[in-house]
């Protein structure tokens, strides 16, 4: 019998012969068994404000103990983390940080949550899963920033221990996903629906890249889909693009483009639309009812928080999110 295995973690579904490496560079077939090469070996370890992920409706003003390993399931041409996402684990300098150590560090740095972020946490699924399980026991929350390119079964399994997810919805066309990211849109949309079904706190990030995905019609379509399938309460972050990796010949997104995207989202019924990667009044959270500033942010710093027990201090409207 051939010792061929198929990875069932993400829609890439790599079929690997002995010794072969998966597309995400972190999995290998050794003698007919599939192994992860990055368990407990993160190369990026930082303590970041939760706003940096970005999570705006999840424990504002706290810090997240953030980890990532090498590798990614996609290959976006604009990746700002390409030095880890597009390299092999053995080409990076790593820390030895098993799950227990992640928890003890998170506690030592007084982080309210652990964030699986920077690259694509799906590639270190086993490490993330074990860490999340241990963190739950210590009452540390688990968040991930992901591209949502993951199969249903692993995602539902992880959801038991996950508290919040920020999913990159990179564009609303299959063309963009196949030409710029080397993936497909459909699985990402499926993941969004699954996360909502599982009751995970969900926020969405859309990086607006000039000329590639800034078409107003497509943005409107995307916002309608979000309202329709995920509801009006999912916060939507429009991020400013900066030239990175291979897309170095496009300019930063004009501010008007971001502002009009945000307006499109609000018009489509999204209740919380933000502008990110730039200081703007649309970094603040406004009460959808009385329109007052509820959470005032500059950069990653929360200057004022008027959400009390999940409600607007001024008009008592319930504000969706995880507040304590």
């Amino acid at each position: 019998m051939e010792k061929i295995v198929q990875c069932e973690l993400c829609p890439n579904g790599c079929i690997l012969g002995p010794g072969q490496r998966s597309r995400c560079r972190t999995r290998t077939n050794s003698d007919g068994k599939l192994y992860s090469l990055v368990y407990g070996r993160p190369c990026a370890v930082h303590v970041d404000p939760i706003e940096k992920k970005p999570f705006f409706h999840f424990l504002p003003g706290t810090t997240a103990f953030s980890i990532a390993t090498a590798g990614c399931v996609l290959a976006c041409k604009f990746c700002q983390n390409w030095q880890i996402s597009q390299s092999k684990p053995e080409d990076t300098d790593t820390y030895d940080l098993p799950p227990a150590k992640v928890i003890s560090n998170a506690l030592a740095y007084r982080c309210a949550s652990i964030a699986y972020t920077y690259t694509e946490p799906t590639v270190f699924y086993e490490y993330m899963y074990d860490t999340a399980l241990a963190a739950r026991k210590e009452r540390v929350k688990n968040t991930m920033h992901s591209c949502g390119y993951i199969n249903e079964r692993p995602l539902r399994t992880l959801s038991k221990y996950l508290d919040a997810a920020n999913i990159d919805l990179k564009a609303f066309t299959e063309d963009f996903y196949s030409n710029v990211c080397g993936g497909r849109l459909k699985p990402v949309l499926d993941s969004l629906v699954i996360l909502k079904e599982e009751g995970i706190w969900l926020e969405i990030t859309n990086l607006v890249i000039p000329t590639l995905n800034d078409d107003a019609k497509k943005i409107r379509e995307m916002c309608r889909w979000i309202v329709d399938k995920l509801g009006r309460d999912v916060p939507l972050h429009f991020s400013r693009f900066f030239p990175h990796y291979r897309l170095t010949n496009l300019p930063p997104t004009p501010i008007e483009t971001l502002e009009s995207a945000r307006k499109t989202a609000l018009d489509a019924g999204v209740r919380f639309a933000y502008i990110g990667n730039i200081r703007h009044e649309a970094e603040n959270t406004y009460c959808p009812n009385c329109k007052k500033v509820l959470i005032e942010r500059t950069g990653y710093v929360v200057k004022g928080n008027h959400v009390v027990n999940g409600k607007c201090r001024y008009c008592n409207t319930a504000i969706p999110g995880v507040w304590n």
């Binding site: 192994y35 490490y127 079964r153």
Partner: peptide, 10 residues
């Protein structure tokens, strides 16, 4: 550093 993966099949 090898750790057996969770979701895969022969």
């Amino acid at each position: 550093h090898l750790t057996e993966a969770m979701f895969w099949r022969r």
